[in-house]
């Protein structure tokens, strides 16, 4: 059974890297920590996409399984991250990540 798709592997990876880079771009430009985490999610998705594509290339379930692990990972990370965000909002009274720069040098 196929989905009658026939495209070069690279194209999917192009999509994945573009999403990855958009996510990275988001991390770089956003000062709001929420958006940063959101961008991170896009990057995670890009990785998932890459795994699924790789799995599809070999017609194996391993890619999807890795995707599931990534899901768990993303979920775990978001949970902790949002906890931190809440703390940030309280202790720094802002969501501006640039304000958290007391540690430097």
């Amino acid at each position: 059974m196929t989905t009658a798709l026939s495209i070069p592997l690279e194209h999917v990876f192009f999509l994945a890297i573009i999403l990855f880079l958009i996510g990275a771009f988001g991390v770089l430009i956003r000062r709001n920590i929420i958006f940063m985490l959101l961008s991170l999610e896009i990057m995670m998705n890009a990785c998932g996409l890459a795994f699924v594509a790789a799995g599809a290339r070999w017609a194996e379930p391993d890619g999807q399984i890795m995707f599931m692990f990534i899901l768990a990972l993303a979920a775990a990370e978001v949970a902790v991250a949002l906890g931190l965000v809440v703390q940030l909002a309280r202790r720094f009274e802002t969501l501006d990540i640039d304000r958290a720069e007391e540690l430097n040098g």
């Binding site: 059974m1 196929t2 989905t3 009658a4 798709l5 026939s6 495209i7 070069p8 592997l9 690279e10 999917v12 990876f13 192009f14 890297i17 594509a53 799995g55 599809a56 290339r57 017609a59 194996e60 379930p61 391993d62 999807q64 399984i65 599931m68």
Partner: peptide, 27 residues
């Protein structure tokens, strides 16, 4: 992109469906 495009005889994804059952079994 430049690097990936240098790949010759690129692999095609035929969209071979890996059904949930198989995924579950392996998982």
């Amino acid at each position: 992109g430049y690097t990936v495009l240098q790949t010759e005889n690129s692999a095609m994804i035929e969209g071979q469906v890996v059904p949930p059952k198989e995924v579950g079994t392996v998982l």
